[in-house]
Amino acid sequence: MATQNISVTLITQGEHKFYSGTMDIDLIAATCSTNPREDDPIKGFQRTLDEGRANSIAEYIRVGGTIPSSIILSAQKDSDLSYNSKNKTIAFNEDQRSFLILDGQHRVYGFRKLLNEGIKYRVPVIIYNELTAMQEARLFIDINTLQRPVPKELLLDIKRLADRESDDEHMLDELFTCFEKEPDSCLINKLSRIDKKKGKISKVTFYDSMKPVLKEFNISSAERLYKIINTFLLAAHDVAASHQFNLSSSITKATVFKILLAHSRAIITIISDNNSGDIDKISEHKKYLIRSLPGSFDEILKSKSYLKTAESLDRKLLRRNLTI
């Protein structure tokens, strides 16, 4: 059995000691497992591997991506790990059961998919030694519960800076900016760009609500779409106010916002078909909203399914009083 040596730094944090170093991906793939105690599944705690995610990681490396975060490992008995304080190295057996992966199993799975492609890639590793099974399980829990994920809103905003937006995302970001900054915006001071805030519409909610509108209508200008949607929302506010309902304080609720945007598609379609030249007139939108919104505000506020409520509004909009 081959023995491997890597340079490390010994780090002490409270009662724990661990080694920080780097390893080639072929060595990681040859020495790490999600459960070295595979004959005892009761003690295993790792998640089921997602092959699609591992394939994405492998492709990311193929195209030159960088992975600076550490793979976190726990040395097992079969590793026979030893530390040389003079040379600042650790030695361990090259065995598939040498290390238990505490964090980074999908990255390691992705590395394995690259083994026969001649790709050279080195990644950081953190190696704990002499942990009990209970300590490993607790550390696994800590890693997967105490780390706070980056807000989706922030990732959407960073995509713009990284030039990784899709065409739709680019359009939605321009539309968000219009609603965020235009003086006549119905949503002025009601949007949150990079995180979730009480009393604000998050960028994720905004995107989720606007995507169907974007797909429904062939409008290539964010400014033009802003004008149409803003006119609709201003009309909705007017109708609500005339029925003693304060939509301004309720529109930031995600479900309410999604209901209104879903319903806007039906009204915009009717106006486009019948009076396309009046699409920018608040009065034209109000003409149709007075069919659907009055008597529906309580339903909108209490809605648990925005699609069902939007469908209910659409039915009221299309209903006709028949005289026989």
Rank of each mutant, 00 (worst) to 15 (best):
L293Q: 03
N275H: 14
Y226D: 10
I282H: 00
F179C: 04
I259V: 09
I42M: 09
L115G: 04
F232A: 07
L27H: 06
A58W: 04
I201Y: 03
K113A: 10
V123E: 00
K308G: 08
L81M: 11
T269R: 08
T3W: 09
T269I: 03
V8R: 00
R164N: 15
S283A: 15
K198S: 09
I28V: 10
H170M: 12
N218Y: 01
A54N: 08
Q135N: 03
S74P: 04
G21W: 05
L10D: 11
T205Y: 06
L234N: 09
H243G: 08
M134L: 15
S7M: 03
K86I: 10
S283G: 12
N116K: 11
Y128E: 07
Y83I: 01
S250M: 10
L293P: 10
L317I: 14
N321G: 12
T12K: 13
S209H: 08
T309I: 02
L307P: 12
A29W: 01
D50H: 04
G118K: 02
M134H: 12
E15H: 05
N275F: 13
D80L: 09
L307E: 15
K227I: 11
T12M: 12
T309Y: 03
K258P: 09
Y60V: 06
K215F: 09
S70V: 14
D280E: 12
